[in-house]
Each structure stands twice: as C-alpha cells, then as structure tokens.
Design a protein around this nucleic acid. Structure first.
Lengths: 342, 342
DNA sequence: CTGAAAGCGCTTACAG
DNA sequence: CTGAAAGCGCTTACAG
C-alpha cells in the first residue's frame, strides 16, 4: 500500500524514458514522438498517474484555480450564478475555489488573501468589492479580477454590468401601462450597486412622468424583508396598486403578504414587477413578471475573458440588459406586446 | 511593477534572516524567538507577503484544499448544504474546491480525478458516489472521503447518514393522526439512497398499519415534477387526502398544483408532509410540515472528522435524525404534541 | 533559536 | 524528438 501518489518519475521509470518526456506528454503543444507518447500514456494509465497541479502550478505560475468570492451563496440568485460559473470554469479546464464572505469587516479582504495564497489565476467577485490597494496587489501578482454587478472597475479588471437603471425605468412604464394609479418602489437597505441602480432608474422615470410614488426600504435582501415591506406598504391609507420590487426574493414575500395576510389579489388589486428571475418566480403561486438576469451569459463571458485577454491596463467592461419576463403579476388588459412599451 | 509575488526569500532579505526562519514564522508550533518573529512579521507585512500554499502544500503533502463534489448545486437543499460546508471549512482554515457533476457518465470520476490532481486533502460527496476502485486510489493517496447520504461507506471514509426510513415511517403515523383516509407516497425517479430510504420507511409503516396506499414516482427531483405528481395524484378517482412527498421541492409543486389548478385546500382537503426543510417550505404560501435536515450539524461533523481522525481502516459512520418541523400542511385538530405521536 | 542544505514534483530552456 | 540540469517557493531534518 504505497502511501505516496505516483509521480512523473515513477511513470518515467516504467516507460523507460526521462521525467522530462513524461512532463511533455502532458503539456499541450510540447513535442513528443508518437511512440514515446504511447509508451508513457500506457505507463501513466497503469500507475494511475495524475499530474500534480500543485507542482505544475508552482512552476508554470498558473494554478488553474479561479476564486469565486461570494456572500450568502445559498440564496436562489447567487446559487444559480455560482452554478453557472463553476460549470463554465470546468468546461474551460479550470477549477473553482469558493470562498464565502459574510457581513463582517475584513471578510472580503481575507477571502482575497486566501485566493492570493493559493495563487489563483483570478478572482471573481459575485458580491462585495475588494479595496483598491488589495486589487492593486492582485494585479501585481498577475491575478485577474472580474467584478460582477459592481460600480466601478479597476485597471486590468473586467466589470460585468447589468442595465439596472434601465430596468427600473421600464418598470415604471410597465406599471403605468397596466393601469396602476399609485406606484411604489420597494427595496432592501443593502445598498449594493445593483439595487441602487434599479432604484435610481425607477425614480428617474417616475419623476419624469410626473408621478408621485411611495418609496420604502427595509432590512436585508430576503423573503422575510418582502413580508415586512408588504406589511408597511399594504396597510397604508394610500395603498399602492403597483410595486416595483428590486429583487424577486423580496417580491415573493410581498406577494405572500398581500395574498395571505390581506387577501389582496395579484394582479387584480396589485401589480408587481421583480428583478432576477429566480426559479421561484416561475412557481405557480407567484407567476411574477420580472427582469431576467442572464446568468449563463454572465458566466460564459466572464470565463471567456479570463481565458483570453492580455492584461490590459484599462478597466474593461461588458454590459448585459436584463430581459423582461412577462408572467402574471401585471394586471391583465395591458398590451402583451412588450416591445411597444417604454 | 514587479510582476512576481513576493516570496519568503524577499522577506528574509528585508528582515535580515534566513528563509528558513521566515518559513518557521508562519508554521504553527515552530520555534522562533520573539525578536526575529517581530522582525519577520514586520517585513512580511510591508511586502504584503502571503505564504505560497501551492509550494507549502507540495512539500507538506497537505494542500488545505477540500473538494466538494456535487450535482445541481443551485437547488435549495444543495446550496444550503454547500454554504454550510464551505463556511465550516473556512472556519477550520481550509478551503473549498467546488466541482460540479452532471448526469453524464464518468462525471463523478472526472471530478475525483480533478481533486486528486490538486492533491486535495479530502473529497466530500454531496451527491453521487465514486467507484470503489477510485475510492481506493484516493485512500492510497492519503485523501479522505466523506459520503453524505450514501448507502455504504468505504474503508477509511466517513459515511454521514440520515434516518430516512424513520422519517418515512413517522410520516405515515402523522398522516393517520391527521385523519387522512387515503395515503399516497410521492417521489421522483432519482433513486438516490435518501429517496429510497424514505420510500422504504413509508411502505413499511403503511404495510404494518394495514393501509392501502397509492405510490407514484416521476421524473427528476424538482418543483416541476411536483406539479406533475400533483396532476396524476389529484385527478384520480380515489384521490388521496394525505401525501408524503420525499422532497420539499416536489411538495411545493404538489401544493401549487392542488391549490391553483384544482382549488384543493391544504390542509383542509389535503394533508402533506415533505422532507428537507428548504427555506421555501417556510414561506407563507406553503407552510409545509416537513422533516428538517440538520445541514449545519452535518457540515460541522464532516469537517470535524476531516480535521481529526487517524485514517482508520474501517468505514466510520454518523447518523442524524431529521427533526419534524410542524407547520400548517397537516390537517388541524391533530394533536400538536408531536412527541406523543408514533 | 538559527542557518545551510536537501528535497517535494514539476517545467523549461539548453544541448545534442 | 529527447535527456540532464536548473529552478519554482516552500519545509524540514541536521548541525551548531
């Protein structure tokens, strides 16, 4: 029972070649003759040899590891993005190191230090944002950064943006078109760039349309917050009949609050638009009209950039526009031909 | 702009000590005098030094990386377990390499090979199961295995089990106590050890009680399957009034199907019990009575075993019993003192 | 407590 | 195409 994994040396001996030849055999593009390759492959297979990526990463200065830094990863939207990212990474022959961050101070910094110590080729931030100095350290170390749904990029990083404000703007138009008289903007206090963008767009459009609207922000970005948002909004004298909620998860809470606590019918008495298109939005109890985050495209694009891309000095940026996913939470009678709408 | 990360050598030079001293300074338990330690720490901090875990892993034969192998990780239950596991690992100073597996052949084998090539200290299987020969290879390489909700363990591995059959059994009693006349067992065709165990327990108890029950299995383990299960079950002549569904996700589908497609009231006309206790089960539209998987304890225990534990030759095993989480999907009037029930 | 030296498993110029 | 040799950044006996 050999307690040590087989190394290239073992394979070389069995195949009767040098360790360099073995190494070449597993290096794409290196030159080995068909005969030696065959001999080596045979020996490797027999011994169950796997290249030691720790060693090769050390020498080649490329570990093949990508850090995925993320808070609250069990949340529907996050876990979908995480799944898409790990899958895309795997298809590209890379591997994902998942690091949780929590609300505590220094948590993202610590995550990034972990990433650095494993010499990950890159770090993808699904949430949170590294301090500029730390980002600089990463870049010096040849580590690439992709920032998803963040405000600003850093030199040599990829910023993946979503047209959040645009969605907020469109929500106002859609709610109006659905015949809503009293609009509300519901959000959490998380103040992430995504939420802030959606809120801003809503405000801009509502202002422009000369509308008077209610605005409410509460707690964390969760289902429970949706419930509380619903409690506040739906007990008001001037109860809104059209709500744009910055997140599907919270919107589900509002719907449940409306339906089960107040008997308010969606969409008859209340129209609602969310954002994200989490799986639950499609469930029959919700049927939430929402803006879909193109999770797969985001993942695909991020990985593609990671793979190619000379480390440019400027911050690169890609933008996606969330696609409206019409379901049943907007009052009927509104024109289903969405393209014709604002 | 130095494009190479700082190494122990740089720190040693700046601090005026040997590279060995620097290494010791970052090795718990190694002997360094307070003065040299201070000098080194200062220099390291100034340079932004981070120990290269690739190199230390190589030399110490311990990478600090744990592979988490998992299919469909964006599913509510899986993503919760994944979050718990990564968090527990981080608290222990380890790091999680997340590998997706899909339904395709050889997918788990490939995942495990990835893990081996990164010389992960261990692999945790959240789903799927490695072939015995591969498991043996892992053990020879000093890699530990933890198998969650699997059927059998391997020598030197930890098997984490849940009392699935027990839950299935209790479900029958609870449904009976709720006054249900016609029971049904609803599941997917996934045939995982967990599902099979729950099904078996149900059957055993129903048989023992001399009950006649309907049994239906369908598709994958998903919300959509729940919908279809509902369609089949609720259109029957002898429509059941009590269902044990092996998974909350599917149970949510059944509830929605009953409520929105047939106007069947839960729990008045239909009682339901699920399994997992995913967050959605607590949402107001579901209020599903279910058995809770102790996700945090499972994660905690797994990591603890990973940290301690001489590699014993036998397969170790821990069992958890899922806790009944009473909500509102069981018909009222049934004794809320759950302890008194079967 | 400390440093010089050997070695982990690999890759990559460098000759041939 | 192939091998001998140097070197990646670290740790760990081994002396002192």
């Amino acid at each position: 029972m050999p307690n040590s994994p087989v190394s290239a040396k073992d394979v070389a001996e069995l195949a009767g070649v040098s360790r360099a030849a073995v190494s070449r055999c597993f290096t794409p593009g290196a030159s080995v003759s068909p005969e030696t390759r065959a001999k080596i492959l045979k020996a490797a297979d027999k011994l169950g040899y796997q290249v030691n990526r720790l060693a090769s990463g050390l020498i080649r200065n490329e570990s093949g590891i990508i850090a995925l830094i993320c808070a609250e990863l069990s949340t529907p939207y996050r876990s979908q993005l995480l799944a898409a990212l790990t899958a895309a990474l795997q298809r590209a022959g890379k591997v994902a190191l998942v690091i949780n961050t929590d609300r505590s101070d220094g948590s993202v910094e610590q995550a990034l230090r972990q990433a650095i110590s494993y010499r990950t080729d890159a770090a993808v931030f699904l949430s949170g944002m590294p301090a500029k100095s730390l980002a600089e350290t990463c870049r010096r170390n040849g580590m690439r950064l992709v920032l998803i749904n963040r405000d600003e990029g850093y030199p040599g990083s990829l910023l993946v943006r979503l047209a959040d404000a645009e969605a907020g703007r469109r929500a106002v138009g859609l709610l109006q078109a659905a015949g809503c008289r009293k609009l509300a903007l519901a959000s959490s206090c998380a103040d992430t760039p995504s939420l802030v963008g959606r809120e801003r767009g809503f405000r801009a459009a509502a202002t422009k349309a000369g509308l008077d609207w209610i605005e409410l922000r509460h707690g964390t970005t969760s289902y429970e917050t949706g419930l509380e948002l619903g409690m506040s909004l739906l007990t008001r004298q001037d109860r809104p009949d059209g709500i744009f909620c910055t997140t599907d998860l919270m919107a589900c809470g509002i719907i449940d609050c409306a339906r089960w606590r107040f008997g308010i019918r969606v969409p008859d008495d209340l129209s609602l638009i969310g954002f994200d298109d989490i799986p639950q939005s499609g469930w029959e109890g919700y049927e939430l009209t929402t803006f879909q985050q193109p999770v797969d495209e985001i993942a695909e694009k991020s990985v593609e950039w990671l793979l190619t891309g000379g480390a440019s000095e400027t911050a690169e940026e890609v933008s996606f526009v969330p696609i409206l996913k019409p379901r049943k939470s907007l009052r009927r009678g509104f024109d289903p031909d969405v393209r014709a709408l604002p």
